[in-house]
Every structure is written in structure tokens, then in C-alpha cells.
Design a protein around this nucleic acid. Structure first.
Length: 282
DNA sequence: ATCCAGGATAGCG
DNA sequence: CGCTATCATGGA
């Protein structure tokens, strides 16, 4: 690294787990750390023990993006006291729910429907490389996520070439609504969570699950709990054992009541643990 | 080859 | 409300 690295303390933090836990999809392993972008800055992070080093951004942005200021004790103490949660929390030590720029978070999760995590990464890289800005700093290079204005002008065939399939149409329509100021992503920030959710699901391709991802990963609503196929699996196998298929409304009610003020954190730890350890028939 | 993936949506009874 | 087909693509 030719550029000067700054350092800051990062106790009980795991850079690798945080960037690889399925909440953000564009960080690349690079020289012992990770290279990527924060908005329009190309950034490099590396971790040695409890020290986090970085270049390409300032300390307050690094702390904010990686959520090093979250009240970890309070969060961990808020979790329900059961075996599945304990296992997940132990497996996921160091994961923070980071603060992502709202547009790239919304756009990326719009493409996430019925795709595996590494496919979501592949689509994200393809979109960035093709339509984003090339950002370079020293020997670091990465591509920013294209703005809604940029995506609003591209053809659907170009997004199909990025392997979006039926998701291309939704991403295009949403980009046009945001670019045309028909939908205000900044106004969402000021709304109570329930109203923000109602607004987000107005967007084409955004249902309750993706709205909750955006609320959790971009708008700091740490109680928002997206229920995807993995969380549905965790709930039915760990909390509804022995009963057949549980109707989604019942799962939502249970999740909202059982997992407390930091349900989104609990969800992320359960997701990470189950996704990386689950094996069929055992 | 068959089933599934960090879903949403319209249509049905 | 609850169930189903459909959407497009690649991985397991």
C-alpha cells in the first residue's frame, strides 16, 4: 500500500465477517484486507487484532459506515435467552450492521430476489463496472454504484446482460421514480419506521422483505427484521419445531414480539450462522 | 436432472 | 386470508 494508512481501535469487531455476512455485496479481498467503495470514495480496510486500518476516507466516516459506534453490550443483552440465539451470537461475534448509502442498498436488494448471495455480488459488480464511475487512488481501484439518474437512462437489455432477469424491470422503474423525484429517499430517513415501510413497498419490486432490508441496512432501523427463506427456516426449525409449515403472518408476529429492540441484529446473526452451517439431513 | 436461491405480484377460491 | 403460477438465471 503506497498510501498512508490511518488506524483506530475496533474492539469486538470482525471486518471479514461484517463484509461477508450478506448485508453488503461489493467488498473484495485485497492484500490482507478489503477494497471497495463508500459512496464515491474508493476505500481500503484491513484489520489486525483490535486495530482497524484504512485509507480513502476519514475516521468519522469509517466509524459510521462500519457502525463501530453501535452499543454492542446493549444489543447483545437485548437478545432472547435461548439455545439457537446463543449459538448464532457466538458464531457471529464481531458482525456489525453497517450504514449503507440508501440508493445502492435499495438497488442491490431489488436485485436480490431469489438469488444466492454470490449471484447478488456478481450482479452488483457487473452493474458497477458497466455503469458506475471508475475510482482510483494509488494502486486501489473500484467502481461506484451508478446513480438513479444514470440507471434511469440505460436500456433494459443492458441490465439483462448483467444477469438481472425479471429484476431488471423493477430496478429500472425504481431508478426512474427516484431520478424523477417521484420518490424521495432522503424523506424516508425522517419518517417513523412504519410509515417508511409503507412508502418503500410502493416501489415496484419492493415488498415487505426487501423494505425491511433497506430499513435495516440503510436507515438504521435496527428493529426491522427481514424474513427470507433462511430466517423462515430458522424460525420453523428452532422456534416452531414439530409444527408443519408456519403461515408467514404468524412468523412475522412471532418475530416482532420475540426478538426485541435489536431484532435486526438478532436476525443478522441467525442468518449468518445458519447460512454457513446448515446442512440438509443433519 | 431436479430443486432451490436474502421475493414480489396477480389471480384464484 | 391462504394457496399457486409466474417471472430468469445459475448453483448445488
Amino acid at each position: 500500500m503506497s498510501l498512508h494508512l490511518q488506524s483506530l481501535p475496533a474492539p469486538r469487531f470482525s471486518l471479514e465477517k461484517t463484509l461477508n455476512s450478506g448485508q453488503v455485496f461489493h467488498w473484495v479481498p485485497c492484500k490482507g484486507g478489503f477494497a471497495g467503495t463508500i459512496a464515491e470514495d474508493v476505500v481500503y480496510f484491513e484489520q489486525n487484532g483490535e486495530t482497524l486500518s484504512f485509507v480513502g476516507t476519514d475516521e468519522s466516516s469509517a466509524v459510521s459506515y462500519l457502525a463501530l459506534d453501535h452499543p454492542l453490550d446493549e444489543i447483545l443483552n437485548s437478545f432472547p435467552d435461548d439455545a439457537a440465539m446463543k449459538l448464532a451470537a457466538e458464531y457471529s461475534v464481531g458482525i456489525r450492521i453497517i450504514r449503507q448509502p440508501s440508493w445502492e442498498c435499495l438497488a442491490t436488494f431489488l436485485t436480490s430476489a431469489v438469488k444466492q448471495v454470490h449471484q447478488i455480488r456478481a450482479m452488483s459488480f457487473a452493474i458497477r463496472h458497466r455503469f458506475g464511475r471508475r475510482l482510483q487512488c494509488g494502486d486501489l481501484c473500484a467502481y461506484s454504484y451508478p446513480s438513479p439518474e444514470t440507471l434511469a437512462t440505460v436500456g433494459s437489455e443492458q441490465l439483462i446482460e448483467c444477469k438481472l432477469g425479471f429484476r431488471a424491470r423493477n430496478l429500472l422503474s425504481t431508478a426512474r421514480m427516484v431520478a424523477g423525484r417521484e420518490f424521495d429517499l432522503e424523506a424516508i430517513r425522517k419518517l417513523p419506521t412504519e410509515e417508511a415501510r409503507r412508502a418503500l413497498v410502493q416501489l415496484p419490486g419492493v415488498g415487505e422483505k426487501i423494505a425491511n432490508c433497506v430499513l435495516l441496512f440503510a436507515y438504521e432501523r435496527l428493529d426491522a427484521i427481514p424474513i427470507d427463506v433462511w430466517i423462515a427456516r430458522v424460525l420453523s426449525e428452532a422456534y416452531f419445531k414439530g409444527r408443519g409449515k408456519i403461515p408467514m403472518p404468524e412468523m412475522k408476529i412471532f418475530a416482532a414480539n420475540y426478538f426485541g429492540a435489536y431484532a435486526g441484529y438478532a436476525q443478522q446473526y441467525l442468518f449468518h450462522h445458519w447460512r454457513l452451517t446448515y446442512r440438509k439431513k443433519g
